[in-house]
């Protein structure tokens, strides 16, 4: 069981969350060229080691999180709110 320290709820089992995907992808603008969209939607770094990924605390606060996790050891290095505004507020508070 991976234990994820949710910045809102505290440390919880990963079974409370759903895995989103590669968190390093920047999705292009809605009117961006097709090549950009193909790259973002279909291509993956597929990191073996530390990767930035998204998780959704679907059985908890329902916040999307950006998690730095090692895909070999499953060790978690950092967790922050995916929403930039919320992340900034949380940072200020802590």
């Amino acid at each position: 069981m991976i234990r994820i320290p949710c910045p809102y709820c505290g440390e919880r089992d990963h079974s409370e969350f759903t895995y989103g995907g590669d968190g390093s992808i920047t999705y292009p603008a809605l009117d961006a060229p097709m090549a950009d969209w193909l790259e973002a939607v279909f291509e993956r770094e597929n990191v073996r080691g530390l990767q930035l990924e998204t998780w959704h605390h679907v059985m908890g606060c329902r916040m999307w999180l950006l998690v730095e996790r090692d895909t070999m050891t499953h060790e978690i290095h950092s967790v922050r709110a995916a929403h930039t505004g919320l992340a900034a507020v949380l940072e200020e508070k802590s």
Binding site: T54, W64, A82
Partner: peptide, 10 residues
């Protein structure tokens, strides 16, 4: 919808 609002269009 949550994903879009949190990740793409904050």
């Amino acid at each position: 919808l949550e994903e879009l609002l949190h990740l793409r269009w904050p």
